[in-house]
């Protein structure tokens, strides 16, 4: 059955481009919040009643975010149509539809938060869904790759050290941690909840990676995915500390300070990468690890 699936280079490259543009969108979205530019364009969907307002001050960030979001929305439509036209895997076609629904919802949340003057719950949903949408685009890029379609290097899961469930828990915890971070950023809760969550998430990821490194080290793909996730996670912790320290240092600043903006935006972007890489690891675990008793099947 797997032999029927054809690798389509164009579709894969398009999916990669979509994921890359979405990451860029997350970065610019982070800039909008960090630069306090969220309300610089009071109207929506137009900007100052126009398609193209003067790109000055905060408008550069807010309208720039809207422009990139529009582009990502269009790219997602193309991706969904492409998948439905050529893809034989029904679940992947459905994933394309989910991505489109997510990006539409995301656009509506973005408009709503502007019109409602940034209520914390809409802004938090907007920020969290952005991360989930990015991970969806990364998943589509993985599923359309030649690597995914190639015969996997399978390893039998050891009964004593199962990692399938743990690999699912990790992205769930990362999503929760990202939602806490978004809620703290939009002043719904104190940063303490996000700070307290970080050792839990980092601990689970470290435990998962250590288990893979120790017990499944012969599987190169698994090992590399685990190492990548760990590296990204610890980079994220460093960025989180740096972002927090700069916020304290510039608590009395009368305008967003470049160092604080830089660390915070990188923290948001690497947060998206943490979620995407934890989901990628969960996918690879399911692909490369056979259930006990099914290894020889």
């Amino acid at each position: 059955m797997a032999a029927k699936i054809i690798y389509r280079r164009g579709l894969h490259l398009w999916s990669m481009l979509l994921a890359l543009c979405t990451l860029m969108l997350v970065v610019v979205g982070g800039l909008v919040t960090s630069r306090d530019a969220g309300l610089s364009v009071p109207d929506w969907p137009l900007s100052y009643g126009k398609l193209m307002p003067p790109m000055e001050g905060g408008i550069l960030y807010e309208h720039g975010h809207r422009m990139i979001a529009t582009m990502v929305g269009m790219f997602t439509i193309v991706s969904m149509v492409w998948l439905w036209r050529v893809e034989s895997r029904k679940w992947l076609r459905i994933l394309g539809v989910i991505a489109l629904l997510a990006v539409i919802t995301q656009g509506l949340l973005g408009g709503l938060t502007v019109l409602m003057l940034l209520p914390w719950w809409v802004s938090t949903m907007h920020a969290t869904l952005a991360q989930l949408f990015f991970s969806t685009t990364v998943a589509i890029a993985i599923f359309t790759s030649s690597w995914w379609l190639a015969e996997p290097t399978t390893t039998a899961e050891q009964t004593a050290t199962p990692i399938r469930r743990l690999s699912l828990i990790a992205p769930i915890l990362v999503v929760c941690q990202l939602a806490l971070g978004a809620a703290a950023r939009h002043k719904a809760i104190g940063s303490i909840y996000h700070i307290c969550g970080s050792p839990i998430v980092a601990g689970v990821i470290l435990w998962l990676s250590l288990r893979i490194s120790v017990h499944y080290s012969e599987n190169r793909e698994l090992r590399r995915a685990a190492l990548t996730l760990t590296t990204i996670t610890f980079t994220q912790i460093f960025l989180g500390i740096a972002a927090y320290m700069t916020r304290i240092a510039y608590a009395d600043a009368v305008q967003p300070m470049p160092l604080m903006v830089t660390f915070t935006v990188f923290h948001v972007a690497v947060g998206a990468l943490t979620l995407a890489s934890s989901i990628a690891l969960a996918i690879i675990v399911r692909r490369n690890l056979t259930l006990v008793g099914a290894a020889s099947a």
Binding site: D36, A37, E56, G57, G58, I59, V254, Q255, P256
Partner: peptide, 9 residues
């Protein structure tokens, strides 16, 4: 406040 010029208050 003015979000175009975040120093304005």
């Amino acid at each position: 406040t003015c979000s175009v010029h975040p120093w304005m208050k």
